[in-house]
Structures are given as C-alpha cells and as structure tokens.
Design a protein around this nucleic acid. Structure first.
Lengths: 244, 244
DNA sequence: CCGAGACAATATGTCCGAGTAAATAGAAGA
DNA sequence: TCTTCTATTTACTCGGACATATTGTCTCGG
C-alpha cells in the first residue's frame, strides 16, 4: 500500500464532462486562444498526461477528439503538431465553444456574421417556399417564448435559437440544418457579448415577426429581405458593444 | 496454451490509416449507410472490440472520434447510442467521405448543391471586392491546370478544387474558408459520379473563366451571377447522370 | 394495487505497464 | 558531398484491473 497514493485522492472534476472530455476542452481552448500556435508540437504523451495528472489513455482519447476536429495531427517520432488554422473545423459546435471560451477574435465574429448574412436570408427564402404547418407552429412558439422572456435570460436566448433553428429545419435541407448548431452558437454568444457590455439590444420581436410573416405568406423575396435586415441589425448591435 | 497466439500474427491493415482510424472509418461508414440507424445501441465495448479483433483501447479511441463528430453518444450502463441525424456534423470532411463511401443519398447531394448555390455566388461576390494579386494568380494557375488535365484525371479534379478553394480564400473569411473542404469534397465526388455514369461533363473552362474575369474586374454582381450559372450547370449534369 | 426509495447488476470510464512499429536524426560509408 | 544504414525517440497497440455511474429491480410502505 503506497501511502503516496492516498494523497492522490483528489478528484480532478474540472468540468461536468468526462475526464477525457475535460482534457480535450482544456487543450482545445489553449489552441483556440493561441496558447499553442499552429506548428507547435505537443510532444511527449507521458509528459503531458502527467502534467495534466491523468492517465495516458485519457490523454490519448482527448487527442483523438482534437484530431477528429482537425486541430492537431500526430505521427510517430514527430509528435503531436498543431495544424494550420485552415484545417480547423471552426464550424464544429464544440470548437466554436472553445473559440468563445477565451476572448474571441473580433475578426472571427465578423466572419460568422458574414456567414449568417449569406446563409440565413437564403434559408428564409427556401423556408417560405417549403414550410409546413408544423414549421410555422414551431416558429410561432419560439417567437412567443421570446416575447415572454427577455434575451437576458437563458430561456429567452433558447427561444431565439429555436426560432432560427425552426427556419433552417423548414428548408428541408440537411446541409443547411447542420449549420443550425453553428449559427445558433454564434447568435447566443454574441447576444451575451452585448449583455456583458451592458448594451441592451433593441427589441428584436418586430424584426423576427416580419420574417415569420413573410415565411407564412410564402413570399420568398420578402422573407429573404426581412432576414437580411435582422442579421444586419444584430451585427450593428454587436459591433457597437465591442467598440467600447 | 498460447500457441493460438502465434497464428494471430496477421496484420489487420485494413486501410492505410492508423488502426483506430480504420475502425472509426468502418463504423462511420456503417452509420452513414444506415446499417446502424439513429437510436440503435452499439452496446458492449468488449464485444465490439473482439468482433473487430482490436483491443478495447483502439475501439474506444475510434468511438471518441465518432463522438467528436456527433455521430454517437455513450453513457455508462446505457451503451453507445447512434444520435439522430440532425446532430451529425455532415459538413465534416471525414463524415462527408463516409457518406460518399457507400451509395450516397440523392437528396443529400441535392442539399449539398443547394448549399453550394448559396455559398459560392456570395463568396465570389466577396472575392471580387477583396481579392489580392496573389489570389488572382492562384485562380489563374488552377484554371490553367484544368485546361491541361481533363476532369477525368485526379490532377484535373485537384485543379478544380484549387480554383474554388482560391475563391473562398480570397473572401478573407475564416468561416467561409472552412466550408472549402466540404464544398471541395462535394465537387470532387459529384464529378466522379458523372464519370461513373459515363457522362462527359461539358467543357467547364468557359464557365470558370467567366467567374475569374468578373472577380479580376472587381465586379461583384457579375461574379455572383457567373458563379450561380456554374453551379446550376454542374447540378444539371449531376442530375442527368443520376437519373439514368 | 401502486408508488417511492434502496440496492445490485452491468457497461462505460479510468488507470497501469509492457511491448511494437514507424519516422526522423545521426553516423558510417561511397 | 551524397547516400545508405542504423539507432533512438515517439506514438501506437495491447491486455488486464479497478472505479464509477446509471439503470432496472426489488422490497417496503401507503
């Protein structure tokens, strides 16, 4: 009975995740924040696993996660190398979460909004053509949720996400629906930025209702335009809140 | 009596990948092809690892990869469950590869083209405004490569990918550049479909040149329109080749 | 007869140590 | 100087053991 083991009874429950998930989170945030730059080498499985106080198995499984998301690549003798940013799956919801865990790059946020400005108006147009009664029902419920709760609450932000999600689902396009998670994350985190900067976003209900009305009417062009306005205003709010 | 071990000298080098990568590939294809449907449970780590003739560590690392891509979720006692399709990271290059490994869903291919039809014209417009001299040079070289080699060759398809990739890079938008891998994959595999169906795609050079010229001229509207035509024609070719 | 709480069974999660294979750096030779 | 070979370093794979958490069941009480 090694008495040294008795001291080691600490439970490294850093997050609520599984252990390897927590390790992946830690490493992912470190990479996204630039602590480990592309080209850097995380050499030494044993060294890192010991430094993080986990077994090599847990560390390796964490590295597999990072590899699956295109953040690193590991080869014998060469070690585990951080890949260039172009290989990162930046639209992966988890990677996105890591990117926003630190202080996110303003340029990157603008990129996300530019993507929203491309995807969502087009999606709204498609939704106007293809939406079913159930889709409209989901949108209305989400909008009602936004009316009940402020965007300052989790419930309000969830309703906002649900609204945009319902539109993307109404496009009946799997590839677009996948982007829902990414775009939803962008919506949520940018909203939190505004709050962090003590900026109260203007009342979003009218803009959202305009989109809903156009989709319900089956007017693709109007839906696209209404959504474009909505995204533009959200970008304005975000930029002013980051400027200060 | 370990003489049975001596027989076990076989090298299960299924693919060129690492072992856990090969397992992940096998499981990923099985899931994408519908062999394992959402909700199905891959219960029994030991059973699966033995069935695949690999250690439990290798199997677990493979499952971590699938988990990272949103294909499965595993919990103690409950087993490893295949997640609903909406949770899959269908735009992940590796997942896309698994989707095209079997016989891909026509609906899904149409979804990808719809996404291209949204992204690429908008990207071309942005590229027209932001392209540098180096960007134009890359596009010209890619176009030259397409002229030299037919799309029936790997080199030709690579040049095609390079062309679209250069445009997305010229947008100076990280979020759009990430989609490059996905869209590039869609371009490559759909081109191969046409070949498999003995359909010779029409000469793609003029269409591509039109896009390049508009971007070089800095005419965003023209670039967008030219790209829209290009994608539409590619979709036409693909649909006719799949119809037969 | 039905519901709530305790309990045990089971599958995943974690850890350990050894041995294998591969890729790069260095040494030896041409 | 260039090529080839060796040798070391590093990731990769394996098998086993223990810990942990969830779930289904069983019992007890209403």
């Amino acid at each position: 009975m090694s008495n040294a083991d008795a001291v080691k009874t600490k439970k490294p429950r850093g997050t609520g995740r599984r252990l390897h998930g927590a390790i992946a989170h830690k490493l992912g945030v470190a990479i996204l924040s630039g602590e480990f730059a592309p080209g850097d080498i995380l050499s030494g499985e044993v060294a890192f696993s010991e430094a993080l106080d986990v077994s090599r198995s847990a560390y390796r499984e964490a590295v597999q996660v990072l590899t699956a998301k295109g953040l690193v690549e590991s080869r014998p003798k060469a070690g585990t190398r951080v890949l260039p940013r172009s290989r990162w799956n930046l639209l992966d919801p988890e990677v996105l979460a890591w990117a926003f865990a630190g202080e996110p790059d303003i340029t990157f946020i603008r990129s996300l909004f530019e993507l929203r400005g491309i995807i969502e108006p087009a999606a709204a147009a498609l939704a106007a053509e293809r939406r079913t009664r159930d889709d409209l029902k989901a949108m209305k419920e989400a909008l009602a949720g936004m009316s009940r709760h402020s965007l300052a609450t989790d419930a309000g932000r969830a309703a906002d996400r649900d609204f945009h999600d319902a539109i993307l689902r109404a496009t009946r396009n799997d590839a677009l629906m996948v982007l829902s998670a990414s775009i939803g994350a962008a919506v949520t985190w940018t909203t939190q930025f505004k709050l962090r900067a003590r900026i109260l976003p203007r009342n979003p209900i009218p803009d959202h209702r305009a989109v809903l009305d156009a989709i319900a009417a089956g007017d693709a062009a109007a839906a696209s335009e209404a959504m474009r306005l909505l995204v533009d205003q959200a970008l304005d709010d975000t930029q002013t809140s980051m400027a200060q």
